[in-house]
């Protein structure tokens, strides 16, 4: 049996928050993330993800909140997409937005920004 992991090594995980893009059907259905911004920081851009979900680490929240902007384009048709913020250490979740069916080439975006309380 391995030794317990010291708390000093787990400290980063306790505060870790992630933005998760999920879509359905999601197996072998590529999606291009044109960009995801969080509190004026670019989280990712022009990235292809072939299977749902796509997970990216977020910076520390500002005033306990995240403001997200994004543009996402499926490479094949999907029946729905959602964007959520997760805190894995507690399992808490903040729903950012969701959309219905999107065809290849459609753009799902919000450049004004959706604000959620950091989970």
């Amino acid at each position: 049996m391995t030794d317990p992991i010291p708390n000093s090594l787990l400290a980063d995980i306790a505060t870790l928050r992630q933005v998760v893009l999920t879509w359905s059907p999601g197996k072998s259905r590529p999606v291009t993330i044109l960009y995801i911004r969080c509190n004026d920081a670019l989280v990712t851009h022009d990235k292809l993800v072939t299977d749902s979900p796509a997970i990216f680490r977020l910076p520390e929240p500002r005033n306990g909140q995240y403001t997200l902007t994004w543009a996402v384009s499926p490479e094949v048709a999907v029946s729905g997409m959602a964007l959520v913020v997760l805190r894995p250490s507690t399992g808490a979740r903040a729903d950012v937005d969701l959309t219905g069916p999107k065809d290849r080439g459609d753009l799902w975006s919000d450049s004004q920004g959706a604000t959620v309380n950091a989970p």
């Binding site: 359905s24 059907p25 259905r29 094949v76 048709a77 999907v78 029946s79 729905g80 219905g100 069916p101 065809d103 290849r104």
Partner: peptide, 17 residues
């Protein structure tokens, strides 16, 4: 206008290829 409304989460009835 996809059948079942915009939020319908049924099977994808479009080409993937």
């Amino acid at each position: 206008e996809p059948a079942g409304g915009a939020a319908a989460a049924g099977p994808v009835q479009r080409t993937d290829a």
